[in-house]
């Protein structure tokens, strides 16, 4: 599986390996494709759809689509950027995202992506759902209000922690992350040292008693937009 694949992203020649996804090859080449549910250490999920690119004119999720020789991939066209903005706005109105006092502010990938995509405020009406909190675990706090159903915690618990703490429950608008115990996370074998805790892109999974530890100005996305670390590879001429 080491065959080399050549294709272009927005006209830039990119080299990938057979079996890689477009997202992986792009990241290695220093091209940032926005994403939320995808994470380098996890199996691709393809649910947020933010990484959608046009592959030979057809929309495909870059996180699940394999690289193919000669493919013409469009990533940063005005059309795609607009469609991505719409998706991120949808995630904002679907839940209750109170950035101004969320502990994750400044380190939140949803918020950072909104800034990068130039979203001032969603144009869609807010749903204002009623969602539950779960504080049954001594060290971990779950706030479903801020959950974007990306499934990173579900996969991280299985793939990285070797446990089975989470799974999706319900369907459609009623879909939510459920725990492997009827009485809450505190009754599962979840531990604060588990990878799922830090892998949440938003403020839905938080460590207790460590909030607001990093001063404003020093947080992950305070100085550079999300994706900069990937683009830096290209600047360095990787």
């Amino acid at each position: 599986m080491s065959a080399t694949i050549h294709f272009t992203i927005d006209g830039v020649e990119v080299t990938g390996k057979a079996g890689q996804t477009i997202l992986q090859a792009a990241s290695e080449a220093g091209i940032y494709i926005p994403r939320l549910c995808a994470h380098k250490d996890l199996t691709p999920h393809g649910s947020c759809r933010v990484c959608t690119v046009m592959v030979n004119g057809r929309p495909q999720a870059a996180c699940t689509q394999p690289v193919s020789d000669g493919a013409i991939v469009e990533n940063e066209t005005a059309e795609i950027k607009e469609l991505r903005r719409n998706l991120v706005e949808m995630l904002f109105v679907e839940g209750n995202h109170y950035c101004m006092f969320c502990e994750k502010s400044g380190n939140c990938e949803l918020q950072a992506l909104a800034y990068r995509l130039g979203i001032q405020a969603p144009r869609y009406p807010y749903f204002f759902p009623q969602r539950a909190l779960d504080a049954t675990h001594p060290d971990i706090f779950i706030d479903h209000n801020r959950c974007i159903l990306c499934g990173r915690c579900v996969r991280a618990s299985k793939e990285l922690d070797g446990k089975n703490v989470f799974q999706f429950i319900g369907r459609g608008a009623h879909k939510r992350v459920g725990f492997n115990a009827p009485d809450g996370l505190g009754h599962t074998d979840a531990a604060v040292s588990d990878r799922f805790v830090s892998i949440c892109p938003v403020g839905a999974i938080l460590k207790k008693r460590v909030g607001y530890a990093i001063p404003v100005g020093q947080r992950l996305f305070d100085k550079r937009p999300i994706g900069s670390e990937i683009e830096a590879r290209r600047a360095k001429g990787k």
């Binding site: 649910s47 947020c48 995630l91 679907e94 974007i148 159903l149």
Partner: peptide, 13 residues
């Protein structure tokens, strides 16, 4: 099914 954002949220909108 609610798996992906556009269908789960967009249809309600």
């Amino acid at each position: 099914c609610g798996y992906c954002t556009p269908c789960r949220v967009g249809n309600r909108l």
